[in-house]
Design a protein around this nucleic acid. Sequence first.
RNA 1: GCCGUGGUGGCGGAAUUGGUAUACGCGCGGGUCUUAGAAGCCCGUUCCGAAAGGAUUGUGGGUUCGAGUCCCACCCACGGCACCA
Length: 1041
Amino acid sequence: MNQYHPAKIEKKWQKYWEKNKTFKTSDSSDRPKFYVLDMFPYPSGAGLHVGHPKGYIATDIVARMKMMQGHNVLHPMGWDAFGLPAENYALKNKMHPAESTEKNVQVFKKQLGLLGFTYDWDREVNTTDPEYYRWTQWMFIEMYKRGLVFESNEPINWCPSCKTGLANEDLDDGKCERCGSIVEQKPMRQWVIKITDYAERLLNDIDKLTEWPEPIKEMQRNWIGKSEGALVKFAVIPTEAQGRAEESLSIEVFTTRPDTLFGCTYCVVAPEHELLRNQKFNIKNQKEVNEYIANAKNKTVMERTELAKEKTGIEIQGIKAVNPANGEQVPIFVADYVLGNYGTGAIMAVPAHDERDWEFAKKYDLPIRCVVIPDAYSVESASKPFSDNFQKDQDVEMTKILLGEKCNVSGGISTNSDFLNGLKTPEAKQKMITWLEEKNIGKKKTQYKLRDWVFSRQRYWGEPIPLVKCEACANKKFNYILIHGFTSNSSRGFKPWLKTELEKDGHRVWNPDLPNTTNPNVNEQAKYVLENSPFSIDEDTVLVGHSLGGPVTYRILESINKKIARTVLVDPVVRPRFNDQDRPEVVASCDWQFDWKKIKINGGKIVVLGDIHRPIIKKEHLVELEKNLGADLWWVIPQNYHFSSRGGAVESEPAVLRASIDSGWSVVDDEELPLELPKVKHYEPSGTGESPLATIEKWVNTKCPKCSGPAKRETNTMPQWAGSSWYYLAYAMPRVKGKYIWDKKVIEYWIGSGLAPRSPSEAQGEGGVDFYVGGAEHATRHLIYARFWHKFLFDIGMVAHDEPFKRLQNLGVILAEDGRKMSKRWNNVINPNDIVARFGADAMRVYEMFMGPFDQPCAWNMQGVVGAKRFLEKVWDLFPRLDKNFTADASVGIMHKTIKKVTEDISEMKFNTAISQLMIWVNELRAQEKTSFDELKNLTLLLAPFAPHLCEELWEMLDQKSSVVNADWPKYNPAKIQDNEITLAIQVNGKLRDTIVVPFDISDTDAKDRALASEKVQKWLEGRAPKKVIYVKGKLVSIVA
RNA sequence: GCCGUGGUGGCGGAAUUGGUAUACGCGCGGGUCUUAGAAGCCCGUUCCGAAAGGAUUGUGGGUUCGAGUCCCACCCACGGCACCA
């Protein structure tokens, strides 16, 4: 037999696999399925370095073992090829991104091909393939139709170098994650996805992810950043009469500590706060304030963070805020330690119990009032010396004494707080919230750190956003009729606000009080509207029906013989059965029979809004309505319960406004998809905020799908994260001539229980890709986006489970030999091609898995690869010792132990110890003169996932016909694992003094006797009688002297 | 600052979850083969000590017959978040 020659063997078997389609995956099988997935790579121009394949090797090992264990395995690979880096690379190399991407993909594919992976290349996906992004665009449109996509002009993160807006997730320490430039805040027209509507579910469902690493889950929890507290309204008043019309003005603050409201001694608004733009009051130091704002604006995110230690701010003179708890007038400051984009952009400052407020108050000498006694100083435990001082009006000193220089109080007992005095923090919070809600000056509020997803990029290389803008439609004026619900009236809830907003835009609005609102009759109310409407109800009419106003709207639409422009149904009653309580008056208000066909026709464009978290109207009713009316159903988080505040105050509901107006935007028809990215010569970013697509007139100018007038396409493109948010589904989609088919049964086969349900409600067990491997750097980006995207697809019935990835495994990066990151910059990159050429792919695979724990970073060591190769050579050299007549009775124990350990370790991603065990066994086998067929067969099978080429060759040498992946994975015999003789350790006073070899089933007393009989033990006992002898079965004897 | 992860020989790391610490590999030392080198092969290799023996899992305490593993306090490294009210 000749030498181990990896180059020859590897080429031979790679050809064999390709020719025999060994890894072709079928969408149906009697065998259980297993879907194992890598985070697909971004095909950069640099090609792969040895770090990249680490995860792919691991999934390949798992895939191969699963195949051998009789599973139908899906193990695909594809390319995440849209996005900024690809475009920047193309620009730098003066190529078209389509070209460079294609070229890079080929390089990557060739490199991966050297390593012997089990990919079914027929399932390769590429996010830049129009047939692929047809679906990305389709999903975006579905989100748009459901009100999850909106246009915004808020300041966003702008990278001056990449010349595009970025999402919060794309930032790294205030810098562009891609190019490292300092990011600016720039107001920009952009498309935003309301991922915040899913914040609560994204947070709660983390608990379902039992097979995810805990640190990743914690990072997601922190990123979502839920805090519960209250909104509190502070009236704003002028300090002296200004001779202007009395206008009510207020600022709203968010606090997690409503219990400390009595300790509020000033308020702070962010420089961006609208109060400062409001000219209603005479601000005495307006100039100074303006300067401060301008100054703050010029600061970058970086500077604002760096200067965090030293807080700045100035008092707004001429106005005061009124603390609603005690009526006290407190100064208002503008300071940039308050963030404009969190909460309401305004805070109540409680310097005694908030570190930042404390700092600020100290600097500007503001009063500090203690309102919570920390638990550590509770009146009983520490009444001296504090209790004496406590009642005195020496708050500043008091706080200092109580809290030293630290002022965080997470919990305690309220004091100096009127009706809260004596209550513990949680109760005080609750009592304050109830009090605020009763007085209608505040309410409970949950706030998230997660921000909506800035989804547009002013760049070329991305999926075109399939939207069309028609100015004529946008400018059209309508006549709105607002129809209130049961026990309500025209002045309640969002209606007055909505009326104002619409009238601002030049629309006409009728907001009537309907008759008999506490004992309503739907027919009577509909009649009232029809008879009293100041406008004729026709194609220029928009009906907005809220709650029981829904059925009134249905009646109106039934009784007219015209089609109106638009119908907005806000949490409308569909059938008189509710989630919370019965309402007999509503039941009695009509016959609940509706002519849905007619309503559907006459309603025009119909939008239904539902409360995603606390619905009064049953979800299935709104879904039914959606179907009956062909409506767009929006699940939103309203500002107020059931879109109407409890106290009847005037409230904004932005979602209702968005649903009510015609923005002029339309979605591209399904037949027009994919909306292809036009091929252009020049695609450099303009830098003005316009996408390079804007200059391609032929492409931009189009027809309005609604009015057929001239319209323009959206020219921004989607971010890289769009295509990667659902690619794991694309692998599971059957294809016909390159077109992806959404076959729910097949998708559910792969990402569900393996059984195909006919509807989401039939879904069984947990869903998701069985096993997903990738880097932890995606914790708060890809993995949040993909979870959101999947939940959306679940909501619209496209998938049957609401989490995409069942088990997640992180991998640790491979560092260069110098311990730094592998990078061109350090000139320390190692190319896998070189390693394969020198040592073979199998040696590289074994080495990378043997380096250390899979999820920990580890530096490359070339000598280690030599060691891996040596090990494979040792295996190879074992085969000439094969004696088919030889049976290895004596050494069979270690074989079964190895089968057990390797099987378990692969399942647990402990490849290093699996290989170690194989090495131990091989070392044992080398000590024998002969090896049995059984030993070599099992060794080949166990090693096959790690070193597939070598093992195919060895398998052939054992006269086996089919590929080794078609062989059965070995099973161990538990009876054979138990050695006949075991070594017991003997400790005297906790120190090891001797070891003895005994039969494995030695009895308790025998073990103790044998231990005590040991000469060494006797020596250490020095004649003393043992006080205590402990026998731990199969392990040791511990003697206490 | 907050959250998370980790700290074991010269190096990468193992340790059945409270039971012989340092498996396996690398490196190093010695030997063997060879004209020589490379590659093999054999032996050794936590530290101190000639040995007997002693010490040792970031540091200091504790629980236990017994602690790398559990508890308390602290130190260091890495990762995430960072004025989030």
